[in-house]
């Protein structure tokens, strides 16, 4: 099944370290290729810790590794980077700033792409 959740992006320590290694480095790919989720949301959506999920917005879609984190229900966190930016729209509400935090996303375990939403 797929569900609409709210996404925030942000800096992590590993993202910063990976950035110095290069955006094509394994460190960067690992650091930015994950999504932290509320464990209850994961259970309800049938997403395993360490499992792959597909996140979709009107802008695009991306596959990330899901990790259980201390997120409130309904909120997911993705480290800033090239991957998550496929999901972010260019609307800046007249400020220059896209919605890097608060974008709604559809999220589902990989393989349930055509699931109900």
């Amino acid at each position: 099944m797929s569900e609409r959740l709210t996404m925030v992006t942000g800096r992590t320590r590993k993202q910063a370290i990976g950035m110095h290694k290069g955006k094509d480095s394994p460190e960067y790919r690992e650091a930015t290729g994950l999504v932290e989720m509320n464990p209850e949301d994961m259970a309800r959506l049938n997403i395993e810790d360490g499992g792959q999920v597909l996140i979709r917005t009107a802008e695009g879609e991306v596959e990330l590794t899901a990790h259980a984190g201390s997120l409130p229900a309904g909120l997911v966190f993705v480290p800033m980077g090239t991957l998550v930016n496929r999901l972010i729209g260019t609307e800046t509400m007249g400020t220059g700033m896209p919605s890097f935090k608060g974008q709604t996303v559809d999220i589902a375990p990989v393989g349930e792409r055509e699931g109900s939403s």
Partner: peptide, 12 residues
Amino acid sequence: SDPGAHFPAAAA
């Protein structure tokens, strides 16, 4: 800077 990595994909 690297807008290629840090901008929304459609802008990049």
